[in-house]
Computed example of a mutant assay.
Amino acid sequence: MIDAENIVYSIGGQRILANVYATFKPGEVTAILGPNGAGKSTLLKCLTGALKPDEGRVLLAGKDLKHFSLTELSRKRAVLSQANPISFPFTAHEIVVMGRNPYSLEKTTASNAEIADEALNLVDARHLRDRSYPTLSGGEQQRVQFARVLSQIWEQEGACLFLDEPTSALDLRHQHQLMDLVQKLAAEKKLTVIIVMHDLNLAYHCTDRCFFIREGWIRGGGTSKDLITADTIAEIFDLPMKYAAMRFGMDLAG
């Protein structure tokens, strides 16, 4: 479980997050939604410990993040960022094995390599195993990086998985494959999954709960199918109601 308690974060005197309270539960997939620049990725970075809030605190299983060592955190949570620029000619398999670094002193090279192969297979990327990572398409790279974060928490029950726009480069088939896999792993391993998303239809159909952020303020926390409505979309994204209903109403109802 992740709890955000009164998170405030500013950059250059501009407040990005304002008094954020939110709880993210094990076994559930929770979406963070909102317009560009609303503070979604900043909140995700605060929740992972990559950014330190100006005020407030983040609790992981009831314990303040600042009381975890980097090694402890690396085993309790994995993070998939929006951008993962790698220009060196690592193979896809080598990228995924990097997720096993927290276990390098206690697991054999062979066992870590086997877990990397299993993770690649889960994300439908086993055939990319020996390809040079920089030569892969954006969608292929995204699947390989997803395999990397899965390998990082492979044997962990109740870990946290943070995903920032994990489907942005994927085609429709792989978008739904990834979200189906996320839901399955959350349920089976009691993962706390937090996803920053722009695709409202995907969030509606493939996440359990959601929060909306606008101008640093957060609201929501209920079920996605109750909260993602034409009314809310019009308000959060500053759209005329007729466009919100026209663009999303029929899809969401289906």
Rank of each mutant, 00 (worst) to 15 (best):
A31S: 08
S104T: 01
R57Y: 04
V8W: 15
H198S: 09
L120K: 09
L191A: 01
N201L: 03
P240T: 01
F162G: 07
S69T: 15
H127M: 13
R77Y: 10
G158K: 10
T91E: 03
T30E: 09
A110R: 12
R173D: 02
N6W: 00
D226I: 05
A125C: 03
S74C: 11
F162V: 07
R148I: 12
G49N: 05
M179F: 00
L33C: 08
G62T: 13
S132G: 10
R129H: 08
M241N: 02
R173S: 08
P26V: 09
S168Q: 00
I7R: 09
P26M: 01
L200Q: 01
C46H: 02
C160T: 12
Q177M: 04
H127E: 15
L202P: 03
E235A: 14
K52R: 12
D3S: 11
D124T: 11
I7S: 03
L163F: 00
L120R: 01
T223F: 14
D180V: 00
L43I: 00
R15T: 14
Q142R: 12
T71A: 15
Y133V: 06
E5M: 12
L191H: 00
A169I: 07
K45V: 07
A187K: 15
E215Q: 11
E165V: 11
A203K: 00
F88A: 09
N36I: 01
C160A: 15
E165Y: 11
G158L: 04
I195K: 00
N121A: 13
A203G: 06
C210L: 11
E157Y: 10
G12D: 13
Q183E: 05
P53G: 03
V193D: 05
V97W: 07
H93D: 10
F212E: 10
T135A: 12
A234S: 15
G222P: 05
C206E: 14
I11A: 12
T207K: 07
E140G: 09
I2M: 04
T207E: 06
L161W: 10
P240F: 09
F248T: 02
E94P: 13
G62R: 09
A234R: 10
C206F: 04
F146Y: 07
T48I: 03
L59N: 11
G158C: 02
S137V: 09
R126E: 15
A38K: 03
G12E: 12
A38W: 01
L51W: 00
H93E: 13
V20M: 09
Q183H: 04
K184Y: 06
K107S: 11
D226R: 07
G221M: 06
M246F: 14
N6H: 08
P102S: 02
G34L: 08
L185R: 01
T135M: 14
I115C: 09
I11K: 13
L200N: 03
G13F: 11
R131D: 09
H198L: 01
L200Y: 04
G99I: 04
H176K: 02
G12T: 10
P85E: 06
M241Y: 15
S132H: 15
W217N: 14
Y133R: 12
L170R: 01
Q177Y: 00
T23W: 00
Y103T: 01
S74Y: 08
E118S: 14
G56R: 03
V149K: 02
E114L: 13
L163P: 08
